[in-house]
């Protein structure tokens, strides 16, 4: 499986949010780093076809994703940055609803939901309303719905925001296991989240890729002790 992005451009008025972005993604974890406004979320929105592109193409195994339509979206698992959920739904209700939107057979959905709630530590609160959840609990519920249907392309926008260190470690390990045969996009400000698990790290600035490479390679190239140092060296003056 290969997701190829060529010359992807998006403008919001005068501002160039994404500037001729080109990259090729194969199964593995891709960490996407950058300051606010670097174009990370715009890139995620374009990959999920939630924003209209001005220019460029996104090809999955050679086919344009706009042509594939619902068949492409069936392969996606998306965890957005904003914690948008129906506050009067219980966690289980929410996941059942998302499973139906993803077209999962109900028996399969029930099994997956049970497993995901257990993995994310939400089994005991599955009956409670999402409106009463803490920020971290909402993150975990969103991660559950992203993982429903065994997606081949997983897009996680700030997945560990609001989680305590133990929870972050657990989620990180879980994502690392998942990434064997799927493409995982992981945008984050917490550099340590991707340092040990990412196959490739893309540093973005002003809609462009500033640099990219495997974590070890970046450390060598920029003579840094860790990725945070690389980040600060390249983006620290912003």
């Amino acid at each position: 499986m290969e997701l190829v992005i060529r010359d992807l451009t998006k403008r919001y008025g005068e501002k160039l949010a994404l500037d001729s972005f080109s990259y090729s993604f194969t199964p593995g974890i891709y960490g996407i780093l950058g300051a606010n406004g670097a174009g990370k979320t715009t890139l995620m929105n374009l990959i999920t076809d939630n924003v209209k592109r001005d220019q460029g193409e996104i090809l999955l195994d050679g086919k344009e994703i706009l042509t594939l339509g619902a068949a492409y979206r069936a392969l996606l698992g998306y965890m957005p940055q904003q914690q948008g959920m129906y506050p009067d739904f219980s966690a289980r209700e929410f996941l059942l609803y998302m499973a139906e939107l993803k077209g999962l057979p109900r028996k399969q959905a029930a099994e997956q939901i049970g497993e995901l709630l257990r993995v994310t530590g939400l089994s005991d609160v599955a009956h409670k309303r999402l409106g009463g959840f803490s920020g971290g609990m909402k993150q975990r519920a969103l991660l559950c719905q992203a993982l429903l249907g065994d997606p081949k392309i997983l897009i996680l926008d700030e997945p560990s925001a609001g989680l305590d260190p133990k929870e972050r470690l657990r989620i990180r390990q879980y994502i690392a296991e998942l990434a064997q045969d799927r493409i995982v996009f992981l945008t984050t400000h917490i550099v340590s989240d991707i340092e040990s698990i990412a196959k490739d790290v893309l540093l973005m600035k002003a809609g462009r890729v500033l640099t990219h490479g495997a974590p070890e390679e970046l450390l060598r190239r920029y003579e840094a002790a860790d990725l945070e140092e690389v980040y600060l060296k390249l983006l620290g003056d912003d």
Binding site: T48, D49, N50, A70, R73, Y78, P80, L101
Partner: peptide, 12 residues
Amino acid sequence: ADMEVLIRTAPR
């Protein structure tokens, strides 16, 4: 509920 993006990403 800020669910629009999530819903539109799903195949149905």
